[in-house]
């Protein structure tokens, strides 16, 4: 009995394709030696990039499109993992690299945001942002909650809540970016 090199499912001896994930399993590629991957450096690289981009004002608006910077950070981490062991990544390698880069990025973004908040969140800027939110067609309670989070200067409770939300969303979407990238690299190997 063979095992699928992508998802680990058990395959019959003469099976060319995995019935679970559809990956082509040729005899030569199924015996490719698989060394240990170093996840830390790719995760730090991905996390730094996504954290910095997620913190810089105006540039961070890209995250308003399904956390694209987070997905990019996860993709970068997975690309670096693939360089260590080209064409043999599993989906879980991308997932793990992505999650780690997302969590690192969350801390980086939150820390960088502290001085930015202190400099940019002047009372005038906060009033301008509140006026902008007024244009959105949100229910009154939602507006009230959003306005409560828009405070001038540095606010510890807002920063801590922001860190938790960053860990959740950046971690989740970086994982998604990592899995998709690993799938694309795995497919290149099978082509």
């Amino acid at each position: 009995m063979n095992q699928c090199k992508q998802c680990g499912a058990t395959l019959p001896e003469d099976s060319r394709f995995c019935l679970q994930c559809g990956t082509e399993n040729t005899p030569s590629s199924s015996t490719t030696p698989q060394g240990e991957l170093d996840f830390l450096k790719p995760a730090v690289a991905g996390g730094l990039v996504l954290g910095i981009l997620s913190a810089i004002p105006f540039l961070n608006y890209v995250n308003a499109c399904c956390c694209l910077w987070a997905q990019g950070g996860g993709a970068l981490a997975t690309w670096l993992l693939n360089k260590q062991r080209p064409g043999t990544l599993k989906y879980s390698d991308g997932a793990l690299g992505g999650v780690l880069s997302g969590l690192i990025g969350a801390f980086v973004a939150t820390i960088i945001n502290i001085p930015i908040q202190m400099i940019l969140m002047t009372p005038e800027a906060v009033e301008a942002m509140k006026a902008q939110f007024q244009q959105a067609n949100l229910p009154p309670q939602a507006m009230e909650m959003l306005n409560r989070f828009l405070q001038p200067g540095f606010n510890l409770s807002v920063t801590l809540i922001s860190l938790l939300l960053n860990m959740l969303f950046l971690g989740l979407f970086a994982m998604i970016g990592g899995i998709i990238t690993a799938a694309i690299f795995a497919r290149k190997r099978a082509d």
């Binding site: 998802c7 680990g8 994930c21 599993k90 989906y91 879980s92 991308g94 997932a95 793990l96 999650v99 994982m175 998604i176 990592g178 899995i179 998709i180 690993a182 799938a183």
Partner: peptide, 12 residues
């Protein structure tokens, strides 16, 4: 694709 990745991650 994402389901497969999450399943593999949990198994790992």
């Amino acid at each position: 694709v994402i389901r497969t990745g999450v399943e593999e991650l949990f198994i790992r």
